[in-house]
Design a protein around this nucleic acid. Structure first.
Lengths: 248, 248
DNA sequence: GTCGGTACACTGGTCTGACCAGTAGCCTGC
DNA sequence: GCAGGCTACTGGTCAGACCAGTGTACCGAC
């Protein structure tokens, strides 16, 4: 016989529970409105500060949104990966995760996304990729910022083709954190035009592989490109950690 | 020229920002204490309700914990995957992420972890794996719960050998969510002993592959095992999404 | 009739001040 | 030296107030 540790239950937690339950059970659908704080406080029989703390928690979880002045009350939001994004971001920035681990993870995710994209792509998807590539090509002459945006868009299209939101979100997060870690080093990258051209031709290869449904090829191209571009920022001692992924 | 949408900045958000910044920058380490709410309210120059709403948000993100009566103040917590788990779980229950996507993601993570483990394992790691396997073997006769615990431990050892905290955490979270989604279906699984024996021999194969540094083999075994065990719970229409991963 | 502006009722955001139950650590009395 | 109580604090909660802002219904000008 073992006993569970007991923790006092705070009033605002009960409020959170009830509202959360109403949302996940579908009783409250996205777009619908919660009663106003003053109304909730009479319904739950608690003070307004308690109601507000509960709403804060739900808002932090991206389940509701409240705007001052709106007589319709707080809005129930559709489930979105935004909360997942935030918590993953926080975890990824926590101390014990270095650039090597991030890059490793990104190679895994990016490789898998490319693999799936190559195997699952429809003709519509291919058209979307062509458009994204075209945007990149035009971006070259519009400066690095523009090109970079188009590059990100290209990756997003690929992630979307893989049809897995978890993959999309994770990749987005990891990419963001990697860029945060090395942004200062990227500042004084010289010869950007030739860099962009190299990137562009790499993406053309990827596009070909996906078009011909060559999953393994696309995955390898993606991983190799990440390695070629970022390995120099990884401490030499840790680079062997990345190599195994290139051989798969 | 494009404009950004502007949103009013709430006072409690500024408070959250500052405290969060202090934590991720390492100025506040896990185990350390925040000043009391009354102290914070003078430092930030806001009312206590504002401070409290900020603390609620941070608490929902699993960054701090506060207990009434503790004169040392709110405690800064170590980065934990609990928040990630919650948000992923919520997303999974909201239908945007189904079992197919979760399983896909888990095959990617687990496969990669096995690949890395096989390529990076040291002799010590192998000894640890042997011990974990032995624990599983003994667990067979101690009931399903015990066996399951040993199984989880085995996977954790593998994830740890891959030396990537992101991989460890993500896998843990996804495994947890998958199990929660199908736990009711697992309840009436019959013939558990033979199931356990099958699991055991599968892990022996994995162990062999890792011992002989066969990364691709280990990865494939892992993914195949996941598919064999869980694909039946995935709607038939979505099973083709999983197949490409088995071919890689 | 439509359109523009305005007034109003109500919203959420914030502050103040109060009370309570609970905790940690001191401090006493043995 | 130690058990037990005391105290000064903590966080949790409530009540009441004020403010800036919003949506809507109303209303007058055209």
């Amino acid at each position: 016989m073992r006993f569970e540790p007991v923790a006092p239950v705070r009033a605002y937690e009960r409020v959170v529970e009830q509202i959360e339950q109403a949302v996940v059970s579908g009783a409250l659908k996205p777009g619908e409105r919660l009663p106003s704080e003053r109304e909730l406080m009479t319904q739950f029989g608690v003070g307004r500060s308690t109601v507000r703390e509960a709403l804060r928690v739900l808002q932090a979880a991206e389940m509701i949104r409240s705007r001052p002045g709106d007589p319709r009350g707080p809005e129930v939001l559709a489930a979105s990966p935004a909360a997942l994004h935030r918590s993953m971001h926080r975890l990824a920035r926590a101390d014990h995760v270095g650039l090597a681990e991030l890059l490793q993870f990104r190679m895994i995710l990016d490789g898998s996304a490319h693999l799936l994209a190559a195997e699952l792509r429809t003709d519509d998807d291919l058209a979307g990729l062509d458009a994204a590539w075209e945007a990149m090509r035009e971006g070259v002459s519009h400066g690095y910022a523009e090109f970079s945006r188009a590059d990100v868009a290209f990756h997003e299209v690929i992630a979307r083709i893989s049809r897995n939101p978890l993959l999309v979100v994770s990749e987005e997060v990891v990419r963001g954190v990697v860029l945060e870690l090395i942004e200062d080093k990227l500042e004084h990258a010289s010869n950007r035009t030739s860099l962009m051209r190299a990137w562009l031709s790499h993406h053309a290869e990827v596009l070909d592989a996906i078009r011909s449904a060559d999953g393994a090829g696309a995955a390898h191209l993606a991983k190799q490109a990440l390695y070629d571009n970022y390995a120099e920022y990884v401490p030499a001692a840790q680079r062997p950690l990345l190599a195994p992924l290139l051989r798969s």
